[in-house]
């Protein structure tokens, strides 16, 4: 079974060094991803979910550092944390692609979108510009962009949000990466466009057999496309489970609250709950379980000791003293 593993993260810690102190954004994360599997990493702003994604890509800002842990990429079992910048550049794009949240900030505003896709192809495959451009247009066509050869000649500002996001996806999958990391890929889009982009992503993953890591705050999107869900809170994973069982019977008090905090079309308003209090400051996280100030079931042990992430059955692990 271990042979199907494609990525393994073990005890990863990424900290930001700020004037206010050390922000422990990712604080001991362990998880693995199988071939063809889609994993969601869900959390609120400040939970460290994006930092985790950017750590895998090694695209962290200057004041952030991976202080501990490893990120193993299979089958060779190379540790991405210890690769040189040159070696990492060969992994990025070719083996792990990334789709970013805001297409406008990640596209070059003064370069035609077709050339931006072609650039990635030329870099990784060393082919001629002509071949790369042709392949870029093919990619746009596969992403159901009407009149693709014309769209390839336009600049980002001439395209709608949904189109730009599809260009970003085209760049990310241009070199057939084994893993695709999507960081809030549809947050900047309207709901009807979001549905379309999600549909496309889902199609590609199946067709190309890619593994997906989807980073999001929206439990709705996750239910649509992911096999497994990891819930993050304050830099830690509090619960990880197979999608169906997580939604059916959430175990961690934070997961339970999170599922109740959002009104949905199938819920009556009396079922909308929410979690009291606010997410903690990661410079000074609470002692013990980080969720204890907001937890309705808090007891003495939670205040003093941090609960480890314990496997409770085959497809679920929870970090909560209630489960022990």
């Amino acid at each position: 079974m271990n042979d199907s593993r494609i990525l393994e993260i073990s005890d990863l810690k990424t900290y930001y060094y700020t004037s206010r102190g050390i922000v422990r954004a990712v604080d001991g994360i362990t998880l693995d991803l199988k071939k063809g599997e889609s994993l969601a990493i869900v959390g609120e702003s400040g939970s460290g979910k994006s930092t985790l994604a950017f750590s895998i890509m090694r695209l962290l800002p200057d004041n952030a550092r991976i202080v501990d842990g490893s990120i193993w990429l299979y089958p060779e079992k190379i540790d991405l944390v210890r690769l040189s910048n040159d070696e990492m550049r060969k992994v990025r794009g070719r083996r792990i692609g990334m789709v970013f949240q805001d297409p406008m900030t990640f596209l070059n505003p003064v370069m035609k979108v077709g050339d931006q896709i072609a650039e990635a192809i030329m870099y990784h495959h060393g082919c001629t510009q002509k071949v790369a451009r042709k392949r870029a247009v093919e990619l746009l066509e596969r992403l159901r962009i009407p009149d693709a050869s014309n769209v390839a000649l336009r600049y980002p500002h001439q395209l709608s949000g949904g189109m730009k996001q599809r260009v970003i996806i085209a760049i990310a999958i241009s070199c057939n990466p084994e893993i695709l990391i999507a960081d809030e890929p549809t947050t900047a889009l309207d709901v009807t466009v979001q549905a379309e982009v999600l549909e496309l992503l889902r199609g590609f993953i199946h067709e190309l057999g890619m593994s997906l890591i989807l980073v999001t705050h929206d439990l709705g999107i996750v239910a649509e496309i992911c096999d497994k869900v990891a819930i993050m809170y304050a830099g830690k994973i509090v619960e990880i489970a197979e999608t169906y069982s997580l939604y059916k019977s959430p175990k961690h008090p934070y997961t339970i609250g999170l599922l109740k905090a959002v009104p949905t079309v199938h819920k009556s308003s009396s079922e909308v709950g929410g979690i009291k209090g606010n997410p903690p400051d990661l410079v000074n996280p609470p002692a013990g379980c980080r969720f204890n100030p907001r937890c309705p079931y808090v007891f003495e042990k939670c205040l003093g000791e941090e609960p480890p992430l314990i496997r409770v059955n085959n497809d679920r692990a929870v970090a909560c003293w209630l489960m022990m």
């Binding site: 709901v191 979001q194 709705g220 649509e224 169906y244 959002v262 079309v265």
Partner: peptide
């Protein structure tokens, strides 16, 4: 189209419901 586009945080409903095909640009 709007209502069928809303992601539903329940995989059973989300994956079994009818979808309205979406096309065209706004």
């Amino acid at each position: 189209m709007l209502i069928s586009s809303i992601p539903v945080p329940d995989p059973e409903i989300a994956r079994n419901r009818k979808r309205i095909p979406i096309g065209g640009e706004i």
